[in-house]
Simulated assay, not measured.
Amino acid sequence: MSTDEQQRAALDQDDIDSPRGRLLAGIADLVDTFTAETSEVQQKAAEERAALLHAVAAEYGPERTADEITLAEAGRIRRAYKLVEEATPRLIVEAHEREGKSATEIATTLGCSPSYASRVLREHRATAGE
């Protein structure tokens, strides 16, 4: 139950029939609508980013060389790179916690150094312990 729903439930029938009660109920409905629409927008944006990453990964295998890349392709790759860089710490923590992978195993999969993966895990433990 959302906070708005809790507040609505706390209003007794007399409050709902009052101008103040109707105003509060209307505001709560608006907040619920805004929250739902915001979640939909965020979900759509996440799906678009995922589609970009998959498209880039499918097109640019290790056999491609830098000489073959066009300006438009470079832009797509850079955008995808930024998304991956932003997600990398979360992915490291998830691989360690959910799959039990070591920092070395994670680093091998991601193509980063084991010390970077270890640092991310250390920082996560320090933050989680606060």
Rank of each mutant, 00 (worst) to 15 (best):
residue 74 A to R: 14
residue 93 V to S: 03
residue 56 V to C: 04
residue 105 E to F: 05
residue 95 A to Y: 09
residue 10 A to F: 02
residue 87 A to G: 10
residue 76 R to P: 04
residue 127 T to M: 05
residue 79 R to I: 03
residue 10 A to H: 11
residue 84 V to R: 14
residue 17 D to P: 00
residue 22 R to H: 03
residue 23 L to K: 14
residue 97 E to K: 13
residue 98 R to F: 08
residue 128 A to N: 07
residue 71 L to S: 01
residue 106 I to A: 05
residue 66 A to E: 07
residue 27 I to F: 03
residue 97 E to S: 08
residue 62 P to H: 08
residue 35 T to I: 08
residue 113 S to F: 04
residue 63 E to R: 08
residue 14 D to S: 13
residue 125 R to P: 09
residue 111 G to I: 13
residue 28 A to H: 09
residue 123 E to P: 10
residue 48 E to S: 14
residue 15 D to C: 12
residue 130 E to P: 05
residue 53 L to Y: 07
residue 79 R to D: 11
residue 44 K to V: 05
residue 56 V to E: 02
residue 3 T to Q: 01
residue 124 H to V: 05
residue 77 I to L: 03
residue 125 R to K: 09
residue 98 R to S: 15
residue 107 A to H: 08
residue 107 A to E: 02
residue 115 S to Y: 00
residue 20 R to A: 11
residue 67 D to K: 07
residue 5 E to Y: 02
residue 19 P to Q: 14
residue 73 E to M: 04
residue 109 T to F: 05
residue 47 E to K: 12
residue 99 E to Y: 11
residue 90 R to S: 06
residue 79 R to A: 11
residue 107 A to D: 09
residue 40 E to R: 14
residue 39 S to K: 15
residue 4 D to C: 14
residue 118 S to K: 08
residue 32 D to T: 06
residue 6 Q to E: 15
residue 94 E to F: 02
residue 17 D to F: 11
residue 85 E to M: 06
residue 90 R to F: 02
residue 56 V to F: 06
residue 37 E to V: 15
residue 48 E to M: 13
residue 71 L to I: 06
residue 70 T to P: 10
residue 97 E to P: 06
residue 28 A to L: 03
residue 123 E to M: 02
residue 36 A to V: 05
residue 55 A to I: 08
residue 43 Q to V: 01
residue 34 F to T: 15
residue 119 R to E: 10
residue 18 S to N: 09
residue 10 A to P: 00
residue 62 P to G: 12
residue 51 A to T: 15
residue 13 Q to L: 13
residue 73 E to R: 05
residue 120 V to Q: 08
residue 27 I to E: 04
residue 60 Y to C: 04
residue 35 T to S: 10
residue 45 A to K: 11
residue 110 L to Q: 10
residue 76 R to S: 04
residue 39 S to P: 07
residue 9 A to D: 15
residue 17 D to C: 10
residue 128 A to D: 02
residue 52 L to F: 12
residue 109 T to Q: 11
residue 95 A to W: 07
residue 83 L to P: 00
residue 10 A to Q: 10
residue 31 V to Q: 11
residue 76 R to D: 07
residue 49 R to H: 11
residue 101 K to Q: 10
residue 18 S to H: 09
residue 115 S to C: 03
residue 126 A to K: 00
residue 48 E to H: 13
residue 31 V to L: 02
residue 115 S to P: 01
residue 51 A to V: 00
residue 24 L to A: 12
residue 94 E to K: 13
residue 124 H to I: 07
residue 117 A to R: 00
residue 85 E to N: 10
residue 91 L to W: 02
residue 120 V to I: 09
residue 96 H to S: 10
residue 16 I to E: 13
residue 16 I to R: 15
residue 90 R to A: 03
residue 129 G to R: 12
